[in-house]
Structures are given as C-alpha cells and as structure tokens.
Write a protein that binds this DNA or RNA. Structure first.
Lengths: 148, 148
DNA sequence: GGCAGATGGTCAAGTGGGTTGACTACTTAC
DNA sequence: GTAAGTAGTCAACCCACTTGACCATCTGCC
C-alpha cells in the first residue's frame, strides 16, 4: 500500500469518526441531555460497566486523575452520577451512574444507532457487518484517549 | 441493527481513530518534526492543495478565523508555511507550505502508512481495500472538525 | 465615480478544560 | 508499627479556543 493511499484511508477514517462523534453528541442533546461533551460519553461508557474509581476513569480516558475528578464533579453536579464509598477501600470512592445517567447512556446508544443507519443504506447490512468485524479486529484495547 | 451493536461499532471506530491519530502524531515526531499538534495536520492537508486563506482554513477546520489565524501564526513561526499576498484580493493572504512544510506532510504520509501496516497484516490486502472503499463511501464531505 | 454593506484579517480580553505540584487520608509491605 | 505507596482533592498555572471590536479592502448599486 502506497503512502498516499494510507493517507486517504486515514483521512476517511478520521472524517467518519469526527462526524460520528458530532452526530452522537447532537442526538444526545436532541433527546434533552444538555451540558455534556463527547468526553463525558467515554466516561459514561466506562461507568455503565459497574462503576469505577476516579483513578480508573483517568486511566481509561488517558488524562490525569485531577482532570477525571473534575469531570466527575461535573456529572455529579448535573445529576448523572454519584460518589459512593468504595467497598473494601476507604480511600477510594466508587462513581456510579444514577438513573438519569443510565437514561443518558441509552440516549447515546439510540443516537449512535441513528447515526449509523445511513451507513447501512449505503453499504447494505452485510457491508456494515464486515465493517464492524474489521474495525473490531484492529481496535486497540488501551485507553480511549479522545485527544487530537 | 440494534442500538447496542451500533454502540459497539461506534466505539471500535472511535478507538481506531484515536489510536491512528496518536500513531501518526508519534511518527511525525519520530521523524524530527516537533511542536506540532494533530490539528496542524488537518491544516497541512488543506494547504498542500495549492494553499488557502485563513478564512478557508477556518471553515475547513471548523473553528473561528481567529483560531485559524493563530494556528497559521504558529506554523509560520516554526517555518512550515508562509503568508503571501493573495493574487486578486488585497485583503486576503494566501497561506502556502514551505519546503519544510511539504517535508512534514510527507513524513505524516509515511507515518500513516506505518500506522496502517499492522492492519494489513490482520485483515489482508483485500480487507484493507474493502475497508478503504467502505469508509470512502460513508465519509462526509464537510469540514474536518477535530473536536470531541 | 462613489457610497453602503459585506468580507478578510488581526488585536484584545475572557473562558474552560487540561496540566503540574503539594497535600491529606488510607492501605499495604516489611 | 512504621515506612512506602496509592486514592483523591485543592490550588495555581497554561494554552487553545471563543467572543467582541476594529481596520482594510472588495462588491453591488445609484
């Protein structure tokens, strides 16, 4: 594969990712959840799997724990999550989503489905499946650093 | 397609995009070009096609023209681009890449190729081709807003 | 030609999300 | 039981981006 082709592939991938992010965000806002940024979505995704500590969240997002703590402050203040004492470690707090937080997560899933729908029309259902399979194979396991 | 599947596809896509961005950036740095952020790459991509004005760049990046002007200041100061009088509009300036800027663009292409190479091993050459074709079909034409 | 409004660009000030550094509270290892 | 390590927060700072104001130039219309 030539360099210019790799660049074209990269540009297409990044453009699709940017548009997807925007559409999901817009869809979440359209469903009545305001004051949230895309970074919050990545936090919610981590929290929805049984909660997490601030430090775990920081590692997941690829930021300092101070930044993660500040983000948690925000979503707690807005009622999307709450801090609970951590069972088995009195230093830590377990951050868990409230019912409103789970509702917001469902809204994000709906928005994602809505954003993906036009792709299915362009590529067909099998095309989407193969895209999902391929992306799943090359997706990294590490932190979801939303930084560029 | 169920909502949860759309979320999985979205998460994989965004994770791949984030990692790709990081790898390209790292590759560019490894080739000796420092002090650049991923946002600069999108600017370079636009400039390499015959130059652009600050306003065009702002539209392309999805930021205000003040922010674009500031970004241009940076890359001019670092020697990657220069401001020329715009032929046919004395208000405007045409921003064009210097030789160093073009070298940096080539370095980014090499880094992109390097980042994509492991995918070819996972998916095979035909897999990469189909991925590229599919992403090209669903990629939007609009501004490359690197914001999430 | 000449004026009014639109457009390209910059300067200045403010905002917000991120960083580093320092600290307390608690846990773990020896 | 003490020393080192870890979870979390507070404080100060940084920097990319925003809004608002402004000047220079272009375009359309009389």
């Amino acid at each position: 594969m030539q360099n210019s082709e790799a660049m074209g592939l990269s540009a297409a991938l990044l453009a699709v990712a940017a548009e997807l992010t925007q559409r999901i965000h817009d869809g979440v806002v359209a469903r009545g959840f305001e004051g949230l940024r895309p970074a919050h979505g990545f936090a919610f995704a981590r929290l929805s799997a049984g909660g997490a500590t601030v430090t775990e969240l920081a590692a997941h997002l690829g930021v300092t724990k101070q930044a993660a703590s500040q983000l948690v402050d925000e979503i707690v203040r807005k009622g999307y999550a709450e801090r609970r004492p951590h069972p088995g470690d009195a230093r830590a707090r377990l951050i868990v989503l409230t019912e409103q937080g789970r509702a917001c997560t469902r809204a994000a899933e709906e928005a994602a489905a809505e954003a993906v729908r036009p792709w299915a029309e362009l590529l067909g259902e099998p095309g989407i499946r193969s895209l999902q399979r391929q992306l799943g194979q090359i997706a990294p396991a590490g932190p979801v650093k939303p930084a560029w």
